[in-house]
Computed example of a mutant assay.
Amino acid sequence: MPSWPAPPACGPPPRPGAWTTCSELVANAIRHTDGPCALHLELQDDSIDVCVADRSPRLPQLRTPGTDGTGGWGWFVIKRLATRIHIKAMPDGGKTICAALPW
């Protein structure tokens, strides 16, 4: 992935784990749920919260990763990169998954 300098007002560029976590959470919501999903990023003092909301009540399942590249790595990678993960059930039956990563 190319590395671009951040605008001065934004501070240093994000760590690669933030990009990976965004990609994995959104891809998992698209692949494993029906309907739309939403990505929300929030910069904290020393971390970034990457949150994805979807309409499915199903919780993520840790799978045994396939050695042939067919899947199973996403949740494993997110759990390794994040310092904190929070899953909140939504009143409409969906959920929001938030992963905090060092910034």
Rank of each mutant, 00 (worst) to 15 (best):
T64S: 13
G66S: 15
A18P: 11
W103S: 11
G17Y: 02
K95P: 01
H32K: 10
W103N: 14
T83M: 11
N28C: 07
W19I: 06
W75T: 06
L43C: 11
G72E: 01
P91G: 03
M1V: 09
T20K: 12
M90C: 13
A82F: 02
L101S: 00
T64K: 14
A82S: 07
Q61R: 15
P12L: 08
S23C: 07
L101R: 03
K88R: 15
D68T: 13
P65H: 07
T67K: 12
R63Q: 13
A99F: 00
G69H: 07
D45M: 09
L101F: 02
T67S: 14
M90V: 13
L59T: 05
L59W: 05
P2W: 08
I85Q: 10
C22M: 09
G93E: 03
R55D: 10
T83K: 13
G35V: 05
L25G: 00
P8Q: 06
H40G: 07
G17Q: 03
L59V: 05
D68C: 09
P65D: 06
C98M: 10
R31D: 04
P5D: 12
I78W: 04
T67C: 13
P2K: 09
A89L: 09
R15C: 08
D46E: 11
E24Y: 04
I30C: 03
V77N: 12
W75R: 07
W4C: 07
A89H: 08
C37M: 00
H40L: 13
C98Y: 04
A100T: 12
M1E: 08
C10Y: 14
D34L: 14
V26P: 02
K95M: 08
P57L: 06
T67W: 12
D49H: 11
D68F: 08
